[in-house]
Amino acid sequence: MSSPCDPEHAPAGDVSAALMMIDSRLKAIYDGRTGTDPEQQQMVEQFAATLGPDGVDALLDGTCTLIYMFMQWLATVCEDHDEEVIEYVLPTHVATMRMMPKTFRPEVIPTMAGLVIAAGTGLSPSLWRAQYGEWTDAETNALEATAVLLAERINRIADDHDFATRMITDVLTRSGQG
């Protein structure tokens, strides 16, 4: 039986813009920068200001698409090792967010866990989340972090700091969107 949250019903969003933001965060992590780089934050804010409401929605949907794609890749890897992807990803993901209460308010963690679970069970994270109304500012911060944490996990598995970004770029190129 088909679910209204099946990915085939979901907008892909602006995956390229979402990937650019995630890649920027990953590069900051790998360069050893901690905290928010004021110059980078200003650039992100300027970029977001040019998007308008529809562009912001497309960016959120694009980030959810990345989460879905990352979880599908991780599910394939987990299957090869007789592991369950949700069991592999979720505990460390939640623990990481709980260690940073100033960055991630406790009430957004269940939503982000739900996004990971939705993607891990083959549902669209954006359609799953849409049933609960508009995104809050705290959730958008944690949404970006969810995608970054998943990409970083993939990069560690591949032992390549650019693997997750390159994987998505390759998919976009093959589909004619990159």
Rank of each mutant, 00 (worst) to 15 (best):
M1H: 15
C5D: 15
P7Q: 08
E8Y: 10
P11M: 12
P11F: 09
D14Y: 02
D14F: 06
V15F: 06
V15K: 00
A17L: 12
D23Q: 09
A28S: 06
Y30D: 08
G32E: 05
T34A: 11
Q40A: 15
Q40F: 10
Q40W: 13
Q41Y: 14
Q42W: 12
V44L: 10
E45D: 14
F47I: 14
T50V: 13
T50N: 13
P53K: 14
D54A: 15
G55I: 07
T63D: 09
T65D: 08
L66S: 11
I67H: 02
M69E: 04
M71W: 08
M71I: 08
M71H: 10
M71F: 12
Q72P: 06
T76V: 12
V77M: 06
D80C: 04
D82T: 05
E84P: 00
P91Q: 02
H93D: 01
V94A: 11
M97G: 01
M100H: 12
T103P: 03
F104H: 09
F104W: 11
P106E: 13
E107M: 10
E107K: 08
V108T: 12
I109P: 04
P110V: 08
T111Y: 15
M112Q: 13
G114C: 14
L115V: 12
A119R: 03
G120E: 05
G120I: 07
T121A: 03
S124W: 09
P125M: 06
W128G: 02
Q131P: 03
Q131G: 12
Y132H: 15
G133R: 12
W135P: 00
W135R: 01
D137A: 15
E139H: 00
L143M: 07
L143I: 05
A145Q: 02
V148K: 00
L150W: 00
L150D: 01
L150Y: 01
L150R: 00
E152A: 02
I154W: 00
I157A: 01
A164G: 06
R166G: 09
M167L: 13
M167V: 06
D170R: 07
D170I: 05
L172P: 00
T173I: 08
R174K: 07
G176R: 06
G176D: 07
